[in-house]
Each structure stands twice: as C-alpha cells, then as structure tokens.
C-alpha cells in the first residue's frame, strides 16, 4: 500500500517541477519524472501475491504469475515517453539558439 502512495508522491513531485520551475530543462526533467512515476505505477498494479515472472516454460507447472499486460503497456508507454522527451529537448536546444536564455518567463514573444 505504501509503495502506491510513494509512487503518487513521485508523480506529484514531477507535476510540481513541470508547472512551477522557471528553467526549461527543469520543466523537461519534471515531465520525465511524471512519466517514470506513471509507468512505475502501472507495473506495480500488475503484481500478484507470491507471483513469479510471466514466462511460460515448457516443463514448469503454472502456479502463480504476475500480470503480464501492464508490462506490455509500460513498454509502449516508455517508447512514447522517449518520443516526447526527444522532441522537448530538441525544441529546448533550438529555443536557446533563438532566444539566448533558458528562462521561461523571458520567452514570451507571443503576447496575449
């Protein structure tokens, strides 16, 4: 029970970083922490008591395996997270070239 709670605390830390920090790189790291936390939460959900890894070998009796579906989901979510992070970092590099600063309160040419 405490592990789920700590996972959600990690998610909140990531969310705080993503919305309150001023440096672009810290915002990107915050989003990365959020993605980690969600993937971890997904895998933790698949745990069954006294379970072992879900590989079906030919000569072993199947007693109790953990749920393999969240593992497949987490794999896909990690690859999606990779694509998002890649794009954010590339954008951050280009923004630094144009604006000369990493401070998001100064990157404000689009006015209301």
């Amino acid at each position: 029970m405490i592990t789920y709670f700590l996972c959600l605390v990690l998610f909140s830390i990531g969310l705080f970083c993503a919305v309150r920090k001023r440096n672009i790189i810290k915002i990107i790291i915050g989003i990365g922490i959020m993605e980690y936390a969600v993937n971890l939460f997904f895998i933790l959900i698949g745990y069954r008591a006294q379970g072992r890894s879900p590989i079906l070998a030919r000569d072993q009796a199947i007693t109790n395996i953990v749920d393999p579906l969240p593992q497949a989901v987490a794999l896909t979510a990690i690859v999606i997270g990779l694509a998002v992070m890649l794009m954010l970092v590339a954008l951050a590099i280009r923004i630094y070239e144009r604006y000369g600063t990493f401070d998001i309160t100064k990157i404000n040419r689009l006015k209301e």
């Binding site: 998610f11 990531g14 993503a18 919305v19 959020m34 954010l88 604006y99 990157i107």
Partner: peptide, 16 residues
C-alpha cells in the same frame, strides 16, 4: 518554437 514548446508541455502533462 515557443508556441510548440508550450503546447508540448501542456499536452504531455495531459497525457500523463
């Protein structure tokens, strides 16, 4: 670039 960055951040938070 700035617009895309802000869109990407907000969209990623929503996806999480």
């Amino acid at each position: 670039l700035e617009a895309s960055f802000k869109y990407a951040i907000m969209g990623s938070v929503a996806s999480c």
